[in-house]
Simulated scan of single mutants.
Amino acid sequence: MLYSRRIIFVQYLLEDVALVPTRLNKITMQAQRDLYLLLSRFILFYELVDELDTFLNHFPVFPNAFLVGGPADIFVIELADQLQKLKVEPVLLHYFSHMKVLQGLELRMTTSTRLKACLYSFTSPGGPMYPTRTVRHAAWQALDLLFPVGRYPRHLISLFFRLLYPWYWPSSCWNFIISCISAVLHSLLRFIFSSWENLWRPKNHQP
């Protein structure tokens, strides 16, 4: 119930205030900026990504825009800051699952590097983020999707640093074995079911 109310409230702020100039202009310029910064942090969480292009086109003018960049840069900076404050696994996974909407945004090099560093901080176990294995995999997927260039060197560097911490070896080996067994079992089951269907399909069509 609380989540539904928050969705309605954020949707109201976005669609009935931020994207309506006649209402938006009734509040001060600083309030407009604060509103857009707030919405930048929660648009992905409340699944309002369909309005992202319109949202960026209505972005107010920021006095430090010549330093940080345009609307897309400010949006991504706020999003990265929000991600680094999160510790709850389902929330992080929800954010990472919507990262594909950032593809195609024209960002400054500094903003792009900031987002890349933010995602990379979730790809390794331990501090400062202490992400779970599921979060690490989701962060890798988002990182590889948004920054495909340098994908394999990143994984090699990550593997090298993992080798420097022997206490992670048992869990890594165990997870690798479990993943291999799971993949083999799924392939075997698909093969069995496929063979079973092919075996019985002619009989089912007989009059």
Rank of each mutant, 00 (worst) to 15 (best):
N25S: 15
C118K: 00
L143R: 00
A18W: 05
P202Q: 01
L164Y: 05
R201N: 06
F191S: 14
V68C: 02
F161N: 08
L164R: 09
P166H: 02
L156R: 15
Y36I: 06
Y12G: 11
M1D: 11
E106T: 14
L115M: 04
V88I: 13
A65N: 02
L67P: 01
P71L: 06
N57W: 03
P153G: 06
P131A: 10
F176H: 10
K116V: 05
V101F: 11
Y12H: 14
L14M: 08
K85A: 08
V91P: 01
Y120H: 11
L52H: 04
Y152S: 15
P202M: 00
F147P: 05
R108Q: 01
A18H: 04
C118I: 01
T123V: 04
Y3K: 13
N204T: 06
F176I: 10
Q82G: 09
T113M: 11
W167F: 12
L115Q: 03
G150T: 02
W174T: 08
V88K: 14
L119C: 03
V20M: 08
P170E: 04
Y168D: 09
L185W: 04
T123F: 00
Y168N: 13
Q82L: 03
P90N: 09
V20F: 01
T123C: 03
R23Y: 09
L37F: 11
N198L: 10
S187N: 09
S172T: 06
D144H: 06
I43H: 07
V20D: 09
V61P: 00
F75C: 09
A138G: 06
L79Q: 06
S179H: 13
E89M: 07
F147M: 05
Y165C: 09
K116L: 09
P125H: 14
L56N: 10
I8S: 13
V135P: 06
P63R: 06
T110V: 12
L48M: 15
F55S: 12
I181Q: 06
